[in-house]
Simulated scan of single mutants.
Amino acid sequence: MAQTESEPRPGGAFRWNEDWLATVVGLALIGLVLVGAIPDWLVP
């Protein structure tokens, strides 16, 4: 039985998944509300 080897990822490579993306978007929205760029009633 032949086993296929997966290619190793480079050590510095960071893959964005949906959890990290949601975290960054949420923090960006909070930051925009805090600086007054968007009104707080707009963000649920």
Rank of each mutant, 00 (worst) to 15 (best):
Gly31Ser: 14
Ile30Glu: 10
Leu29Glu: 07
Pro44Thr: 14
Ala28Gly: 12
Ala13Asn: 09
Ala28Leu: 08
Gly36Thr: 02
Glu7His: 09
Ala2Met: 04
Glu5Gln: 05
Trp20Val: 15
Leu27Glu: 12
Pro44His: 08
Pro39Ser: 04
Val33Phe: 01
Val24Ser: 04
Trp20Thr: 14
Asn17Phe: 05
Ile38Lys: 00
Leu34Glu: 03
Ile30Arg: 10
Thr4Leu: 08
Ala28Val: 09
Leu21Asn: 06
Gly36Ala: 03
Glu18Val: 09
Pro39Gly: 13
Val25Tyr: 01
Val25Lys: 13
Asn17Ala: 08
Pro39His: 06
Phe14Gln: 08
Glu5Tyr: 04
Asp19Glu: 07
Gly11Lys: 09
Val33Pro: 00
Asn17Ser: 06
Asn17Ile: 09
Asp40Ile: 04
Gln3Ala: 08
Gly36Ile: 01
Val24Thr: 01
Ile38Asn: 02
Asp40Asn: 02
Val35Met: 06
Ile30Asn: 12
Gly11His: 00
Pro10Cys: 10
Val24Asn: 00
Leu21Gln: 15
Leu34Val: 03
Leu29Met: 09
Pro39Arg: 08
Val25Asn: 07
Ala37Met: 04
Trp16Asp: 11
Met1Arg: 07
Arg9Phe: 09
Val33Gly: 00
Arg9Pro: 00
Glu7Cys: 08
Trp16Pro: 11
Asn17Lys: 06
Gln3Val: 14
Ala2Cys: 13
Ala37His: 02
Ala37Ser: 09
Pro44Leu: 13
Pro8Thr: 01
Asn17Cys: 13
Gly12Cys: 15
Ala37Gln: 03
Phe14Gly: 06
Thr4Gly: 04
Asp19Val: 09
Ser6Val: 10
Asp40Lys: 04
Pro39Thr: 04
Thr23Arg: 11
Met1Ile: 09
Leu27Gly: 08
Ala22Asn: 14
Arg9Ala: 01
Leu29Gln: 07
Val24His: 03
Ala2Arg: 14
Trp41Ser: 13
Gly12Asp: 15
Ile30Phe: 02
Phe14Arg: 15
Glu18Tyr: 01
Ser6Cys: 07
Val43Gly: 06
Glu18Trp: 05
Leu21Gly: 02
Ala22Arg: 15
Pro44Ser: 14
Leu27Asp: 11
Ala28Ile: 00
Asp19Phe: 05
Glu18Ala: 04
Val25Gln: 06
Ala2Leu: 11
Trp16Ala: 10
Leu42Asp: 11
Arg15Phe: 06
Gly26Ser: 12
Pro39Lys: 02
Pro8Gln: 00
Ala13Trp: 08
Leu27Arg: 07
Glu5Trp: 06
Leu29Pro: 02
Asp19Ile: 09
Val24Tyr: 06
Ser6Asn: 02
Ala2Gln: 05
Gly26Thr: 12
Val25Ala: 10
Val35Pro: 04
Thr4Pro: 03
Ala28Pro: 05
Trp16Ser: 10
Ala2His: 11
Leu34Gly: 00
Pro10Glu: 01
Pro39Asp: 05
Ala2Tyr: 11
Ile38Leu: 05
Pro10Asp: 13
